[in-house]
Deep mutational scan, measured.
Amino acid sequence: KVKIAGPGLGSGVRARVLQSFTVDSSKAGLAPLEVRVLGPRGLVEPVNVVDNGDGTHTVTYTPSQEGPYMVSVKYADEEIPRSPFKVKVL
């Protein structure tokens, strides 16, 4: 029921550039959304989540370095389908 889309989860994500993606939970009811961005060697990146007021949230983060990242998206305390997402930061 929760959908996710945006360039911040795709290929070609650049280090030190603001990345974003949208989480659409409009068909999933009200529940807490939790997003974690883990970088190389367990680095935890700050994440900004904005409630758009229409059942969607815009998530932004800036990867601080190149390497493999994991983006975990939980809704109602459960990983959404395909989460955690593997993101290769260049």
Rank of each mutant, 00 (worst) to 15 (best):
K1P: 04
K1F: 07
K1E: 07
V2F: 04
I4S: 05
I4R: 00
G6V: 03
G6P: 06
G6H: 05
G8H: 04
G8V: 03
L9P: 03
S11C: 08
S11H: 15
S11F: 11
G12M: 14
R16A: 06
R16P: 03
V17I: 14
L18C: 12
L18V: 12
Q19Y: 02
Q19M: 00
Q19G: 01
S20H: 13
S20T: 14
F21Y: 00
F21W: 01
T22H: 11
T22Y: 11
D24P: 01
D24T: 04
D24S: 04
S26C: 06
K27C: 11
K27L: 13
K27G: 13
K27P: 05
K27Q: 11
A28Q: 05
A28P: 05
A28T: 05
A28Y: 02
G29P: 13
L30V: 13
A31Y: 07
P32R: 12
P32G: 09
P32V: 09
P32Q: 14
P32S: 11
P32A: 13
L33A: 03
E34D: 14
E34L: 10
V35T: 03
V35R: 00
V35H: 03
V35G: 01
V35F: 03
R36S: 13
V37W: 02
V37R: 00
L38Y: 14
L38W: 10
L38I: 15
G39A: 07
P40G: 03
P40R: 04
R41F: 15
R41N: 11
R41G: 13
G42S: 08
L43W: 07
V44E: 15
E45C: 14
E45F: 04
V47H: 08
V47G: 03
V47A: 11
V47R: 04
V47N: 10
N48Q: 10
V49A: 08
V49Q: 14
V50I: 13
V50N: 11
V50D: 14
V50F: 15
D51A: 11
N52W: 05
N52Y: 06
G53N: 13
G53Q: 12
D54Q: 09
G55D: 07
G55Y: 08
G55E: 06
T56K: 11
T56M: 13
H57W: 10
H57D: 03
T58W: 09
T58V: 12
T58A: 12
T60P: 00
T62V: 10
P63D: 01
P63I: 02
S64K: 11
Q65G: 06
Q65Y: 09
Q65D: 07
Q65C: 09
Q65R: 12
E66H: 14
G67L: 00
Y69I: 06
V71M: 05
V71E: 01
S72E: 07
V73E: 01
K74H: 07
Y75F: 10
Y75S: 03
Y75G: 00
Y75D: 00
A76R: 10
A76E: 10
D77E: 10
D77H: 14
E78K: 12
E78P: 00
E79A: 06
E79P: 09
E79W: 06
I80R: 01
P81N: 08
P81E: 08
P81M: 05
R82N: 15
S83Y: 00
S83T: 03
S83L: 01
S83C: 06
P84C: 02
F85V: 13
K86S: 15
K86A: 14
V87S: 01
V87A: 03
V89C: 11
L90H: 15
L90T: 10
